[in-house]
Amino acid sequence: MPEQVRGVVARKMGAPVEVVDIVVPDPGPGEAVVQVRACGVCHTDLHYREGGINDEFPFLLGHEAAGVVAAVGEGVTDLAEGDFVVLNWRAVCGRCRACRRGRPQYCFDTRNATQPMRLTDGTPLSPALGIGAFAERTLVAAGQCTKVSPDVEPEVAGLLGCGVMAGMGAAMNTAPVRRGDTVAVIGCGGVGCAAIGGAELAGARRIIAVDIDPAKLRASERFGATDLVDARNADPVTAIRSLTGGFGADVVIDAVGRPETFRQAFYARDLAGTVVLVGVPTPDMELELPLIDVFSRGGAVKSSWYGDCLPERDFPELVDLHRQGRIDLAEFVTERIRLDEVEAAFDKMHRGEVLRSVVVL
């Protein structure tokens, strides 16, 4: 039978979110219902609330989540009730041109549940990134569930569902950072600190953290930053070059996603170096660069989709690294909150007071 549970909904652009009753249907073919244990508060959820993704209101927010499979639909054979899973928004189809060419991390036809969740008056909800996990239960495609060890806390595991994976993957998969590289990361929020952690895991010899917030710069040291640049008092390009013998970094990761930070990243890299954009811009942003500079500097300019991850490969691996003590994913959790504290968490995010607020259910 369909279940009525509590969820966090954005009804209209810019309005405060509300905790309301929603209806979650029984899973259909290829679907699963997941009892959500924890869900991180991500900038992308705020983008949805502000209409920065699309205007398909009302939204059921939340996507950076872990939980336990409560039920599966017809034809689901690789999940069972009780499995501990991290939810992902790249459930690969296995059939599109990217998948057929052996590049499932770029799948162009990712799957979501086909049935809608609804408000109690029957209004269909748009789940954030096809997940909608600021809720006691959510309906997803079975392929959006990635099984990981249940020995890790849900509030830690769930962060792999978006921000931590995006940042670590930008360094380890998209760039990719190689042993001995110099790396600069512009923006030291959750994604930027994850990129720093990924660069350290990959063997970077120098990792330069750039931000305008001294608290975030101090936090970046916990993840492996070797040098700090306060962009309020120093030009990031000049500072990065001075720390790399005048050449620039081998890899520069823009974890902010603004034209000005992208330009800084572009000019702060060494000749034939790599720029990676993992910060999410808004649709109105435009970039101007002299084409001759794009040509003459060589190297690579890349955007990182979800850290170019393959969830079934990367999520269990990172959980195992956490369990081995090689990375401390718990460092990303600033506070644990309730469903009715999501709006306040957005305010803290705006003020730069948290790496991650995590809703615990």
Rank of each mutant, 00 (worst) to 15 (best):
G245I: 06
L289K: 12
P281E: 04
C309H: 01
L321R: 15
G257S: 10
L289I: 15
K302F: 11
A255V: 09
G307Y: 03
N233W: 01
D230C: 00
V256F: 08
R263H: 10
L243E: 05
L318S: 02
L271I: 14
A234K: 03
V280Q: 11
I240V: 14
R323Q: 15
D235T: 03
G246K: 06
C309G: 07
G273W: 02
P316C: 09
P311S: 09
G248D: 01
G307L: 02
A231I: 04
E260Y: 13
D270K: 13
D308V: 00
R263C: 10
Y306Q: 09
M285S: 08
V229G: 01
L287R: 10
L321D: 03
P290K: 10
L310I: 09
P283G: 03
T261C: 04
G246C: 11
T274N: 01
A234G: 00
A265H: 02
G224D: 05
P283R: 06
N233C: 04
G257M: 11
G245K: 07
K302N: 09
A272H: 12
E317N: 12
R269Q: 08
V280G: 02
L289T: 12
D254T: 00
R313S: 11
L228M: 00
G299Y: 10
R269K: 14
G245Q: 07
T282C: 01
F247S: 05
L287N: 08
W305F: 14
R326K: 15
G273T: 03
A300E: 15
F295H: 13
L243K: 09
E288T: 14
Y306C: 00
V294L: 15
R313K: 15
A231G: 03
E286V: 07
L310T: 09
L289V: 15
R323M: 14
P316S: 08
W305P: 00
V229Q: 00
Q264G: 11
A231H: 03
C309M: 11
G273A: 04
V319E: 06
E312I: 12
V278K: 06
A265D: 02
R297E: 05
M285C: 05
Q324W: 13
V301E: 11
A272G: 01
Q324T: 11
G224C: 08
R313I: 11
E312Y: 13
V229W: 01
P259D: 07
K302Q: 13
R313G: 08
L243W: 04
P316N: 06
G299P: 05
A249Y: 06
F247V: 09
E288N: 13
D227W: 08
D284F: 02
L291E: 12
G248H: 03
L277G: 04
D284E: 12
P259N: 05
R323K: 13
L310Y: 10
Q264N: 12
P311H: 07
R258W: 06
W305M: 12
